[in-house]
């Protein structure tokens, strides 16, 4: 058995559309011919709490959970959550981070502080971090709720999956009445990253 399994950890805040994003990611990987597993927590933690989703793919995936220090890509939807889960990243791993802060309750009520200069801290740990202006681009696409699709579009540039498969998956999984702005949001996210010829 070859150990060709790759690990993507999604991290953010309940309500950001992380579960839909990881759903689309897992489906497109299946379509691309990989064995895929994903794991996440529903229920209590979703009420505005910290949310993660583990996506693993390769020729034969065993554990649905990514080991600490083993994520090839940390895909962060919020800056504090991206920073919090940096220890999950392997040495030399990639970070995609949404440039958005959502204050957790202890910070919102003034009993704790949001880490200062958090982008610099993330960049210090991972100099090649891809920061994405998710909310700005989502608003450009016509709906602030499409942040997850913008981010997925950005992430797609790091995965060697044909654009047609992404299109097919999004068309199948996103409700018809929201399809257009979601496709547009995905494209805006994809365009926001420097493209290499083979991924276009």
């Amino acid at each position: 058995m070859t150990n060709d399994v790759r690990n993507i950890l999604l991290a953010g805040v309940g309500g950001q559309g992380i579960l839909l994003a990881s759903e689309l990611l897992a489906e497109v990987l299946l379509l691309a011919g990989y064995d895929v597993k994903k794991s996440e927590i529903h229920g209590m933690s979703q009420r505005g709490g910290s949310v993660t989703s583990h996506v693993r793919y390769g020729s034969n995936v065993l554990s649905p959970l990514i080991k600490q220090g083993d994520a090839d890509i940390l895909f962060g939807f919020e800056l504090l959550e991206t920073y919090r889960y940096l220890p999950m990243l392997r040495r030399g791993g990639d970070v995609f981070a949404n440039n958005q802060s959502i204050l957790p309750a202890p910070v919102a009520i003034g009993t704790a502080e949001y880490p200062h200069e958090i982008q610099n801290k993330i960049r210090h740990a991972c100099p090649d971090t891809h920061f994405v202006d998710g909310l700005t681009l989502a608003c450009q696409s016509g709906h602030p709720r499409t942040v997850n699709m913008v981010l997925l579009g950005a992430l797609s540039t790091a995965l060697n999956i044909p654009h047609t498969l992404w299109n097919e998956t999004i068309t199948e999984k996103v409700p018809q009445q929201l399809l257009q702005e979601n496709q547009f949001a995905f494209q805006l996210g994809r365009n926001s990253q420097a493209m290499t010829p083979e991924t276009i």
């Binding site: 933690s45 709490g49 220090g69 504090l80 959550e81 220890p87 309750a105 202890p106 910070v107």
Partner: peptide
Amino acid sequence: KPDAAVIHSESLPGRPPNMC
């Protein structure tokens, strides 16, 4: 022990669930 690229030394504010 896991071999991670980053290990936090500072404690980060938690994000407990909350009523909507």
